[in-house]
Write a protein that binds this DNA or RNA. Structure first.
Lengths: 260, 260
DNA sequence: CGTCTTTTTGAATACTGTCAATTTAAGTGG
DNA sequence: CCACTTAAATTGACAGTATTCAAAAAGACG
């Protein structure tokens, strides 16, 4: 495992403002074969005919406005979702109105896999900005899986990847201090931006300091202080939610060294 | 999610010492239909004919002596393993000979699911005592999955359960103090012992203080101090690796309250 | 333009980590 | 079987880091 994969997060850099729609359900159908996210998303690694059998499932689309929930913990499980645009956070409820953020999700990433275990969603997914998702009915997906062994393999790989992702986060939470955590978070973000064709060194955070803190297991004040410290060390330029990484390599060394 | 599911761990209470064998590979074949672990393990939820189609895969068996590795990070992925007896830890390598324990595994639990993502094991599995596992060849398993939709469903559920399990641990690592972490760990252990027919209140820890600490994101000295504190609060009786829970309910309140 | 939220920063506190010493248990070889 | 060596666990004193509480500054929104 590389150090840069240690944190897993999300954010999007919208080149042009997307048209805003607040309808919760859109009737559009979606085809994987022609989707510009096909190499990041579920059809990743599948061949043409397998993609077409995904197309036959007729995935729906849904828009979720900023601040709204895609699903909530306890909701009956029917759909898996693939992010088309925008950013989500997923979180677990803690006693006393508090929440633990368990992940951030960006274009091409699947959501809802934790619901397969018990037939109900274990976490809540909230849109951090206006978003659009593909809705994938799980019962239909299983039929496609029965048809094609490679689709079964692809699903298993995606679920396994989620397990590996969480291993990384455990490592982060279990053995790093504040600076290492934030550095790992930013590096992971940087990688995911790059994979989506955006700049790896300059991006806009879609989540608040409190959400970053919850995800990284530290208080929002500590997140803010650590941003300031990185700025003083000339690793970053930070202006509220706009981040510019000045020295990617040195930021990587923050994670690797001093792992107390 | 209940608070008691927050940590996930392992230990076994061996009623009579098992015969010791150090052969790395045993030729025995195993049948799920007659296995006493069938309600905890892979065949959980499957009917008779589906279990028989698992039986046809002819799972092998393997003994792993205390301290030996079942697999190591980087090993090529061929098998998934089900614990038959004994306890494993899985861990990730950290820079500088250090390790992060990512889980403890006991009878009936599957191991190696994180290897599906990349075709190579992401973690290392070490036996904490003399153990025995079923070896399940992944390529064969996929054939059985193709035959039966329910086996596919069962596998997906097990993987999803692993994701949920790790969510819980993230919550623990992200938002609890030392006492809450150890209490959550012990409650989880207690539950898993109970599910296997052992006492829920008295058991033998198979892992060291350092391993517990690595898993819970704290130093071994803090683990030891917290055990002592619980003893003074008359929540536990601890003698090295032998633990007796005096008040399960109050231990539960330690987790629920004060979640700073 | 005023209100509410988010972010930043400071000062004091609390918790966990670090270092070190001691005790206990476990394993080794005479 | 016992003396010896090694490893694991406990406990204390101190240091370091992150949290808490508080206040001020900067945006966001109507």
């Amino acid at each position: 495992m590389t150090l840069a994969t240690v944190a897993t997060n999300v954010l999007t850099f919208v080149p042009a403002a997307a048209a805003r729609t607040r309808m919760p359900v859109a009737p559009l159908k979606t085809s994987c074969s022609t989707c510009h996210l096909r190499d990041l998303c579920l059809p990743c690694g599948l061949n043409g005919s397998e993609r077409e059998s995904l197309d036959r499932l007729m995935f729906g689309r849904r828009k979720v406005a900023a601040g709204q929930a895609l699903y909530r913990a306890g909701d009956k499980f029917r759909f898996i979702y693939a992010v088309r645009s925008g950013t989500f956070k997923s979180s677990l409820a803690l006693p006393g109105d508090r929440e633990q953020v368990s992940g951030f999700h960006m274009a091409g990433e699947l959501m809802g896999l934790d619901a397969i275990a018990n037939g109900a969603h274990a976490s809540t997914a909230i849109a951090l900005e206006d978003t659009e998702v593909c809705t994938i009915q799980y019962s239909h997906l299983n039929e496609a899986i029965a048809e094609s062994g490679n689709i079964q393999l692809a699903m298993a790989q995606l679920m396994s990847r989620e397990i590996v992702r969480e291993h990384s986060l455990m490592m982060l939470l279990g053995s790093m201090n504040a600076e290492e955590r934030l550095a790992a978070f930013l590096l992971n973000l940087s990688q995911r931006m790059k994979a989506r064709g955006y700049s790896a060194t300059e991006f806009h955070l879609r989540m608040s300091r409190a959400e970053i803190g919850s995800y990284l297991g530290m208080k929002l004040e500590t997140v803010s202080r650590t941003f300031s410290a990185f700025q003083q060390q000339e690793l970053l330029e930070v202006d509220k939610k706009h981040v510019r990484i000045l020295d990617l390599e040195r930021l990587g060394r923050v994670v690797a060294t001093r792992m107390h």
